[in-house]
Design a binder for these strands. Structure first.
Lengths: 343, 343
DNA sequence: TACAAAACTTTGCGCGCGTAAAAAAAATAT
DNA sequence: ATATTTTTTTTACGCGCGCAAAGTTTTGTA
């Protein structure tokens, strides 16, 4: 490795003994040059660690090799896990992923889309905030940039949505709970920040009705993404209120459930399916940490891999065909029941 | 908002009635132009949503307004939380943060540093993998780019390190545990992926010796970042082994502790400080979810805010003075004891 | 009112690369 | 060996903006 610094592609091409356009061609696609010249270039690449200036490259390309990944809240392990998978897949496919979190704020979401737009990305994988998203703004973005919406749907916006069948989640869990014991009440936030809450509530109401049971919903107060905290605080209030008319609680998501389990523990309620327990508690999501709660949480898990995989694949074909498909496509994956010891 | 598309700063400046260099000056610092012209420009900015081409900007600046943030594993809530804070502070200061996770892999860490280097960032906030980091590579990077190392120190590398006083963490906890009951044994991984584990072990040994107690260490098998899983599996093995000669267990970090708590629960061991409990369990880190374990986890918390704040502030002054300070500086923050119900 | 200082405009070069067209060279086919 | 195809080189322009120098206008001060 020579210490000599190489300023630009001109100099580098000279070291290789090729012309600059040929070097340029190589960097765009190593296979597009003759094997012999390719070797010459790669030999030089070993000696001098030259790398083309990304800004100069991207300025002149209509589209870059960047893929934007936007999630509503990266400190939520659910999204952290998905982001990890998406990033890996993009790199494998030769793109450079660029990760953004909206930190739960619609303004930041718009900002993220703005900076992404100016990055001329080849495509974007976008999990919107949901109800609090700026609908118009997002719709415009999806028109301008090849975008795959995932996790949270915004009706009629964008060409593709890939996510989970949330009503199926609740219905699956309600069925299981009813078959094995008392029908569940539903523990959810009154104003949830996460997008799929509404569909889960509807799924609960629907499933209960179909089973011929009367639904009970407890609405937890509180705002923001501190779901465990809210589940805990409001769980205690729920328990103390005496409104709990059933010994089975279905939480709208796993993070709420984790907080609720803490509330139960604190209140001396034993949670589980065995005879000596006071309460059954179930969650929804398949949160990465849900197997390590005490007791381990029975839940319905997203098919993380399928969602990530399909999102990425769909985006890649969108990029290749670069045509907006005309009709809007949605793909919903079913959840898998994870039977553990809490319910 | 006019629908008319503006191609470049030339056109935009014309719409404002100012010259292009003046517009350019405005975008670099809105206060550097006369208030009257500033209003003219901002009025135009309302009508046409023009934004300067970031690639053209960055190509011509020696340094960009980008700040790189690199963490070893973003799916760990600890780093997710810190990253969230760092991002926010960078944005407030007028920089554009760019987030990278090394996903636990040294090759990826190097790749991240490579792409960062080619981004000509104003500065980088870097939490390295630690022992598995490529020492030479990282050192070279820190020489080329203004970098603040945080969380995990690499001796002699870089100009600044900001983190926690890990031996103090363990010593603080050991002292507390000894004062209130049996001296603790230490539950850790044999080959930990997280960087500060070694210092914690030494802190444990040292503190036990000072207290006049004999140390006991249980080494959990397993590789990688699935710490809860390892804590769970190996926790069960630990319990079954009969090697546990004390009723107090100090875990090397909170994620291990979460897994260990699950193991205790599964094994029917009651964890807590009250008379009727079999075991006391403590963790280290102040993990975001550690208050929602059952029982809630007694731990020593990083001063997240202080670390993030100091890291960012330090980087900003490094950027402004753009001189390498010559001598290496380290700042270690003490941990705060969080007394909860597990120990 | 004059005068210096500050802010602005004009002009013009340069950044590092994409890319197109035409000419030259090399590889392959006849 | 010649003709044909493929690859490479040459030449040249453009991208959108930073930046510096010199000239012009505006602003604040004496």
């Amino acid at each position: 490795m020579s210490a000599e610094k190489i300023k630009n592609m001109e100099e580098f091409a000279a070291k290789c003994g090729v012309s600059r356009p040929t070097a340029s061609k190589y960097f765009n696609d190593p296979n597009s040059v003759r094997p012999k010249t390719r070797l010459r270039i790669e030999a030089a690449l070993e000696r001098y660690n030259y790398r083309p200036n990304i800004y100069a490259i991207n300025q002149n390309r209509r589209l870059t090799k960047t893929i934007g990944i936007v999630v509503p809240y990266l400190a939520d392990p659910f999204f952290a896990e998905i982001a990890r998978y998406l990033e890996t897949r993009c790199i494998e496919a030769g793109y450079s992923p660029s990760l953004f979190s909206s930190h739960g704020k619609p303004e930041l979401e718009n900002d993220n889309l703005d900076t992404l737009r100016s990055m001329k990305p080849a495509g974007v994988l976008f999990a919107p905030l949901g109800r609090s998203s700026d609908r118009e703004f997002v719709a415009q973005f999806c028109q301008d940039v090849p975008t795959v919406l995932f996790d949270s749907n915004i009706d009629g916006v964008g060409d593709v949505f890939i996510g989970s069948d949330n009503p199926q989640f609740t219905s699956l869990m309600v069925q299981y709970l009813c078959r094995t014991g008392e029908p569940p009440c539903f523990f959810e936030m009154k104003t949830p920040p996460n997008p799929n809450a509404r569909k889960r509530r509807l799924g609960y109401l629907d499933a209960m009705q179909k089973q011929g049971h009367e639904p009970h919903i407890f609405e937890a107060q509180g705002e923001g993404w501190a779901l465990e905290e809210i589940g805990h605080q409001e769980g205690i209030r729920f328990i103390d209120s005496g409104e709990m008319q059933t010994k089975t609680v279905l939480c709208s998501n796993d993070r709420l459930a984790i907080g609720f389990l803490a509330a139960c523990y604190q209140k001396g309620l034993r949670v589980g399916i065995t005879e000596d327990c006071d309460l059954r508690v179930a969650g929804l999501d398949g949160h990465p940490f849900s197997s390590y709660t005490c007791p381990s949480l029975t839940t319905v898990s997203h098919d993380y891999e399928a969602i990530s995989e399909r999102s990425v694949e769909t985006l890649f074909t969108m990029i290749e065909n670069d045509s907006s498909s005309g009709s809007r496509r949605e793909k919903l994956f079913e959840g898998k029941l994870l039977l553990r010891s809490s319910a």
